[in-house]
Design a protein around this nucleic acid. Structure first.
Lengths: 227, 227
DNA sequence: GTCTATAACATGATAGAC
DNA sequence: GTCTATCATGTTATAGAC
């Protein structure tokens, strides 16, 4: 029998409920006052618990961030982001914009969440082993978006494409976080422009000249351990 | 007369000396024990000052990071990184490797320094207005490296090139920080590979087909306020 | 064994005296 | 300019309730 199996379902349910309460309290306060201006004590009070109890469920403030990431990815996967019969351009725009939509409410505190991108020791950073699962699921969702085109592409290009699109997604997110334009219109424009540039590039990957180029790029990334 | 002019040169000198002492103490401790394991109290003691006095010179721990950035850029500009008669490939490799060399001693704590990349409010982040001067100087140093080629390129491509190379530099730095291979050999390999990919791309920018492409890219970046 | 509460610690940062 | 005192907060230790 699995070691982590719940012996007492009711207990597990209570546990999950309390945990969800803490996360909910945290996100509510983050939205109202920002990440840095919300202390673990505030979160505990809001959740009706003591500080120690809050730490029992979330061993660090950053772990609340990780839980939030999971929540966002789950929400994304909950319903399809694009119409499979639409054009490549439309599908890409739909996916990238959907991700922005999902984060819209939380944009003011996203900056605090994604910090520590550069710290190799931080378990919550975008490239950490601890977030590999989320990363893979995110890349897979881009693969699903361009599945028809991937089938037609040369192998190396096809293997590169989903990760490349995920990287584009990260860039748009970073821009989104810093975007102070009304309704973040500039980010939406950037998405449109970037997609308009990327689509022809994907098509060009089918030309014979592009073959060796993509193979070289892939070799570089593989050598670097990035793929 | 300028408002910030030194009325009493001796005082200004002492001030600068004390400031330098604090920075020196901080960097020494960062190198020995890492950024997070060095407290402002440790730094103050090492510099022979009280905590409050240390904060008088550096209003935050992050401001020590900014001072460090300035120091590195100054060191880079102190002597030419490449031989102007060398090939484009050699020059690019020389510049990128030189920047890694300058940071080699401090690599273990670089991760802590570059964190907060995503926080719009952090004044020390790579894209903040407060670091615009450093960013411009860094981009300019790449422009100097490819000056001969820029003259031969179409306008849009020429304007894009230095910033693009600076972006490549940032990527190699991020990789360097996480690189645990012996002597960070993998980063050096990545630099070689990336330069080998980039140089032909720069040459291709001269073909008539590439003209509109670069113009589109530039328009996108300008629209986004990135150039 | 599962959960919760209280106390204490370390540290970044600030206020005010001199 | 420099110091001492103090605060706020992330985190840990520990004791005990159920």
């Amino acid at each position: 029998m699995p070691p982590k199996a719940a012996k007492k379902p009711e207990t597990a349910q209570k546990r999950d409920r309390t945990r969800a309460q803490v996360l909910e309290a945290a996100l509510g306060l983050f939205r109202k006052r920002g990440f840095d201006d919300t202390s673990m004590r505030d979160i505990a009070v809001e959740a009706g618990l003591s500080l120690g109890a809050a730490y029992y469920y979330f061993p660090s403030k950053q772990s609340l961030v990780l839980a939030y990431y999971h929540e966002v990815q789950r929400a994304y996967e909950a319903e399809p982001a694009f119409d499979a019969t639409a054009s490549l351009e439309e599908r890409l725009r739909a996916v990238l914009n959907r991700r922005l939509d999902l984060l819209r409410r939380d944009r003011p505190f996203l900056g605090a969440l994604v910090r520590d991108v550069g710290s190799p020791d931080n378990p919550v950073m975008v490239f950490a082993p601890e977030t590999a699962d989320l990363r893979q699921r995110s890349i897979a969702s881009f693969a699903a978006c361009v599945a028809p085109e991937m089938a037609a592409l040369p192998d190396a290009a096809a293997r590169l494409l989903p990760t490349a699109l995920w990287a584009l997604h990260l860039v748009t997110l970073l821009y989104y976080i810093h975007d102070r334009s009304r309704g973040q219109a500039r980010t939406r424009q950037l998405v449109d422009d970037a997609v308009a540039l990327v689509v022809p590039a994907i098509m060009l990957a089918n030309t014979p000249l592009a073959g060796p180029l993509f193979a070289s790029v892939e070799q570089t990334l593989v050598r670097a351990g990035l793929m």
